[in-house]
Amino acid sequence: MTFSEWLREQCEPEWTAVVTHPFAMAINRGEADMRHYLVQDFQFVDAFTALLGAAVANADTFEARVPYGKFLGQVATTEEKTYFHRAIEELGAEEEPPTQVTRDFQDLMAEVRTSQDYGKIVAVLCVAEWTYLGWASRAEHPLPDSWVHREWIELHEGPEFRAWVDFLRGELDRQEPRDELLEVFRRAVELERRFFDEA
């Protein structure tokens, strides 16, 4: 068992509650009301971008820095950012302040970013991306007719995203196991579950 697999196992049943969450399954069916969810999720983009920058700065090899830099460019300038703007406009969603769980997740990202602890940074990134692959990979084809749901699924599934998650898991597997990494990983999983609960 790899270290990332062990971390995931230690977070049961929370992990399964996230990747099979009723709201996530509703996204997969094209039935979820995405307005509040996307407005809150969009508020993570800045903190997530900063966390990717911290990963670039604190990675211990050049080979590790490159995938972070590539993904950082994608988040900041291309598909995902464009999706948020188009989807929020399509849904007629209005700006709203961050909820408590959104603030808590932003705080965790800021905490691990400022720690400059590469293992903690990877742990939070891995949870964020691996859990989303977990629910999106459960979508049945054909995907929903609604482009808001379909494109959100497609952003978190497919060969490129799977390769990205595999990279993050590989980086986590290279870390020396320690209690602090399990604590951070578990907190991130709990926040993902709370975020879906609220949605």
Results as ranks from 00 to 15, higher is better:
Ala110Pro: 01
Glu63Gln: 14
Asp33Val: 05
Trp15Ala: 00
Val112Ala: 03
Thr131Gln: 02
Glu5His: 11
Arg8Ser: 00
Asp166Phe: 04
Gly53Tyr: 07
Asp166Thr: 10
Ala54Asp: 13
Val66Phe: 13
Asp46Pro: 07
Gly30Phe: 08
Val56Lys: 07
Glu79Lys: 15
Thr78Met: 10
Arg86Cys: 08
Gly170Ile: 03
Arg169Gly: 01
Val112Met: 03
Glu31Ile: 12
Glu14Arg: 14
Tyr118Asp: 06
Ser4Thr: 02
His36Gln: 13
Val124Tyr: 04
Ala26His: 12
Glu96Ile: 13
Trp164Leu: 01
Glu63Lys: 10
Trp164Gly: 00
Ala93Val: 04
Lys70Leu: 14
His156Val: 00
Ala199Glu: 02
Lys81Leu: 14
Leu52Cys: 09
Ala59Ile: 08
Pro97Asn: 10
Asp33Tyr: 05
Asp197Leu: 05
Gly119Tyr: 08
Val122Met: 08
Leu52Ile: 09
Phe185Ser: 04
Glu31Arg: 15
Asn58Leu: 06
Pro177Leu: 09
Asp60Leu: 09
Ala139Asp: 03
Val39Trp: 03
Gly92Ala: 10
Glu94Phe: 10
Glu89Phe: 12
Asp41Lys: 04
Val165Asn: 01
Glu157Gln: 14
Arg186Cys: 04
Phe62Trp: 11
Ser137Trp: 03
Arg113Leu: 06
Phe71Thr: 09
Glu160Asp: 14
Leu108Pro: 06
Glu160Val: 06
Phe3Trp: 15
Ala55Arg: 03
Leu91Pro: 09
Tyr132Val: 00
Arg113Ala: 14
Ala188Val: 04
Val101Pro: 00
Glu160Thr: 10
Pro159Leu: 02
Val39Arg: 03
Val127Gln: 01
His156Cys: 01
